[in-house]
Amino acid sequence: MSDSNSANAPSADPNAGKTPLVEMRDISIAFGGVHAVDKASCELYPGEVVGLLGHNGAGKSTLIKILSGAYSRDSGSIFVDGQEAIINNPRHAKDYGIETIYQTLALADNVDAAANLYLGRELLTRWGTLDDAAMEAETRKVMNRLNPNFTRFKDPVKQLSGGQRQSVAIARAIHFNARILIMDEPTAALGPAETEQVGQLIHQLKQDGIGIFLISHDIHDVFDLADRVTVMKNGAIVGSAQTKDVTKDEVLGMIILGKCPAGAIPGPGALAD
């Protein structure tokens, strides 16, 4: 497949001169001698969708879990709005407006939608007790906007369908004024209609100036949604490109071979020529 852009050098960076919403610099983490992430750097601008691609085990999820505070990095630094950020646990990340929708959804299965939405950030009455009524009322509002068919507010989320659980996970991520949203395989468990819904939601969030990391091992999922793709292989960044500068085949080459095309900016993990 030939594309007029593919042979060209990377086109002008539309974000040139802007401060990234978040920048990860030289992040490394090892688990018992295995370098899961090795000196990886990437950045995300306001209103931008960055697809983070790579095989299973390429280090995408690990890199993103460092950003969301689930893992502590061995070295490297994270900047939010140009300021160095201290992120050592999920709570810190949330304080910076970094919200994550995990592949596993990370819901407490035995409690209802409202309890999950507010998990770790419960609304309290003036007596310091849980304000369940207020949380349920808010949850009804949020869910009505996100998924009007959702009615099972009293059931433990275990009893909900995959799509409904996904709605709860998404609602939880965007309800607290997220500025940086991480979506790990957001459509893996969804049917076509629900996948379409997630796509619409991403467009809408983009309009609001939220930066989104979209993680997937399947380029078809993200190619249409992402402004930029960053590809990882064996824990290192192969390269990064604006989606308009590269073809799907070229990105596939980056994922599988680690070969960086002319339209991309190569990273430390790129195959040497």
């Binding site: 969301s68 689930a70 999920p90 994550t100 995990y102 596993t104 959804l105 990370a106 819901l107 407490a108 299965d109 035995n110 409690v111 998990l119 770790g120 433990p156 275990k158």
Partner: peptide, 9 residues
């Protein structure tokens, strides 16, 4: 219900 989810929350 889900120790990992609680930790991530």
């Amino acid at each position: 219900g889900n120790p990992e989810a609680a930790e991530l929350a």
